[in-house]
Design a protein around this nucleic acid. Structure first.
Lengths: 245, 245
DNA sequence: CGCCATCTTGACACGTATCAACAGGCGTGG
DNA sequence: CCACGCCTGTTGATACGTGTCAAGATGGCG
């Protein structure tokens, strides 16, 4: 049997309006597989700040990020915190095959998730190699990202860290604009940052104050301009890239 | 067809003496699949220090670490280096489905690899879901490790970093001893460190001097004792764990 | 308008990097 | 066999970057 056209009449109502339908996991599914999975899944919305996953909690479900940004973090006993990942649409959320979570997840912005029970997804993974393949590829990408970030955390200066962070967000938060940028030559970017200074600091292994000072520096050097504390404009991404070390 | 007994007569000669036969990837293979894969694979040995993978090189093969320790690292343009992972037997080596390597790999100790051409492995992965599943699980574990290490790099002090490093090595370098330790109560460990101070520094995001000073401190506090610069004895692992932050 | 949280800025302290000298191990060659 | 040089690791003095603590500034929101 050939692969179903993903636009065929079997597409479930729930999935018809899904914006990440083709790019996320579900792209690996045929119409009837999608139908099966969608029976178990439901869309949930959470406002910014919601705890989506608690550290050490039992894993009962997985999710796909459909809209917004999710922040993954770990905390030491004494309260020191490190953000270990940011998930954008259409990323997968949750530790596959795990029993307990080893990190926590918060909604950085308002988010929309497509949630599916652990057992349902794992069953589908078990007899759908294409699905498992997609999950493997996403996991490999996340591992690449994590290793890139280890370089940032271990070897870059505060100034380079902040530049690297802005560059990361600029190139991830709006995949459409980013794709255009790769083609044409409009090398500017503008985005609304879903993270507080404290979040940025926890991502970069810095303090709030140092992040603020480095942002001020980048602003004075006109590499970036900051509107309203959360909105950033980067006139020339290449210029920013040069500051990433 | 049921799963073959992995001790059956079909086991290839090459694999018969493989020490990581049951724990690594190959545990997912039946006798004849193993036979097929072993046709393409060969065992290679490299002395400590050998460059196993060059950054930006084309990926032409994968490997399994059968003996020894492999160091994965990334370098910034100006020479700053960060070790982003250590691979012990029976870890898999190489970026699955990638075109080019995005990191370099060196033999930390003398190593023995079981090497297989990229195309051969990928073909087997394509029609052996169990194999892909194993690879997914290894990748997920590596991602967990990477995220744990991000906390160490971003939020721990030099002293805690060094303690965390020693703890990591003590619990990974000799899986057999470690398994015993989990059972019984002999909480001591002794190992020969396959890394130089420079390697440790690059792993921890520190300088050689700082690593040396912190080791001296741990030695003076009798948390560890150091024989011959490369051999470490840790009388009480729990005590070391308390220093990890 | 005014409160409160968030962000910025400043002064100073502290931890780690840097630079430099020294010690020990090991192979080479006299 | 010891002298020498080299490589690795240790220790010390000092510099610098980032953390800490404190005070303002800014902006969102009732």
């Amino acid at each position: 049997m050939g692969r179903h056209d993903i636009h065929n009449s079997e597409t479930p109502a729930l999935c018809g309006s899904c914006e990440v339908r083709h790019r996320g996991l579900c792209g690996a599914l045929s119409g009837d597989q999608l139908m099966m999975l969608s029976k178990h899944s439901r869309i949930v919305r959470h406002p910014a700040g919601t705890e989506l996953i608690a550290d050490d909690s039992d894993i009962t479900s997985y999710a796909n990020v459909m809209r917004g940004v999710v922040k993954l973090s770990k905390m030491l006993d004494d309260g020191r915190q490190q953000v270990v990942g940011l998930q954008f649409a259409p990323d997968f959320l949750g530790r596959l095959f795990g029993r307990q979570n080893t990190l926590s997840a918060q909604a950085a912005s308002d988010v929309e998730l497509c949630k599916v029970p652990k057992a349902a997804l794992e069953a589908m993974v078990g007899d759908n190699p294409a699905l498992e393949h997609r999950l493997l590829e996403q996991t490999l990408r996340e591992l690449d990202d994590a290793r890139d970030w280890m370089v940032t955390l271990g070897r870059k200066t505060a100034s380079e860290k902040v530049a690297s962070f802005l560059y990361l967000v600029a190139t991830h938060i709006d995949p459409v604009a980013e794709a255009e940028r790769q083609q044409g030559e409009n090398a500017d970017a503008r985005f609304d940052l879903p993270l507080s200074r404290a979040d940025i600091a926890d991502f970069l292994g810095l303090t709030i104050e140092t992040v603020s000072r480095q942002l001020t520096r980048l602003r004075k050097e006109e590499i970036i301009s900051v509107v309203n504390n959360r909105t950033f404009v980067i006139p020339d991404l290449k210029c920013l890239a040069n500051r990433c070390g």
